[in-house]
Design a binder for these strands. Structure first.
Lengths: 145, 145
DNA sequence: ATTATATTTGCAACATAATTGCATTAAAAT
DNA sequence: ATTTTAATGCAATTATGTTGCAAATATAAT
């Protein structure tokens, strides 16, 4: 599947968004990475191809439509990853665990790991869960040993 | 136990920190609240009693010593809460669940709720866990009904 | 009590991150 | 082709966090 572009264009149209260069570029970059991508990184890679403000707005629009989801890392920096197919504007299915590596600082979406059920005190109504595990990723713990 | 001040002074001395007005004030404010407190709120309450920079440094020093711990809310804003007694500079015991209310935006430390054990893919080494639940707190879900 | 010291504070300047308004441009609809 | 609507880029502004340094203050030493 080399023709990502066509796929992305469809994705945009489906969500009522126009097919513009900055938007396609963001989708290309995000899809080409195995972990969530920080806003600063995107900004750096895109360079002068797109204004900083445009990037913010693209990310915001994508998030609202459920095309991408935001994960905050330990420092509170926003990181973005393309949502799996189940996501939509109204129903995010990103309740999987995010893994933040202390060494390479990548953020992995561990789609296979589900967050166990949780007992909360009476009266509390849980709507969403966000679990961030920190430590060493498989690749980095290999190198250390 | 109305004499918090004496208690706080001891806490500072124990951690090799001098007993200064801004530090005591931060401890007073944090201890008087039932949920984690955001940096902006602290800044607002302290007003011109302390410089913004001082506040940052006080919070940083407290965190390093294990006197308080930081929780990031959904927006990535730093929130602080006094650690329970088990905490120290070297060993934070803040692996409990934090609850972020959508309505009042308070952050509760649910000390009683433990994070369930987690299965991660081979090679990943988990060091710390941070689980944020979002929804309605007991007080707010009461009001709604 | 006074002085010495080491820490802490407050200020100024700077750096980074994010938002808003508005004119211009580009995409889609007619 | 023209119109309409959405998106971009720029400038200005606000929020957030950091650093260096001189002045002030808490504690230890005398």
């Amino acid at each position: 599947m080399e023709d990502n572009t066509a796929r992305f264009e469809k994705l945009l149209v489906k969500n009522g968004l126009k097919r513009t260069a900055p938007r396609l570029q963001v989708l290309e970059i995000l899809s080409g990475r195995d972990s969530a991508t920080s806003q600063p990184y995107l900004e750096q890679v895109m360079g002068k191809d797109a204004d900083r403000v445009t990037l913010y707005r693209v990310l915001q629009a994508f998030e609202e439509k459920g095309i991408i989801h935001k994960v905050l890392d330990q420092q509170g920096t926003a990181n973005y990853a393309i949502c799996s197919d189940g996501c939509s504007a109204h129903e995010h299915h990103d309740e999987h665990v995010h893994f933040n590596c202390d060494n390479c600082h990548k953020i992995y979406c561990l789609d296979t790991v589900k967050i166990p059920a949780l007992k909360v005190p009476a009266g509390f109504k849980v709507d969403r869960l966000n679990l961030i595990a920190t430590g060493l990723c498989a690749s980095c713990s290999d190198k250390v040993n």
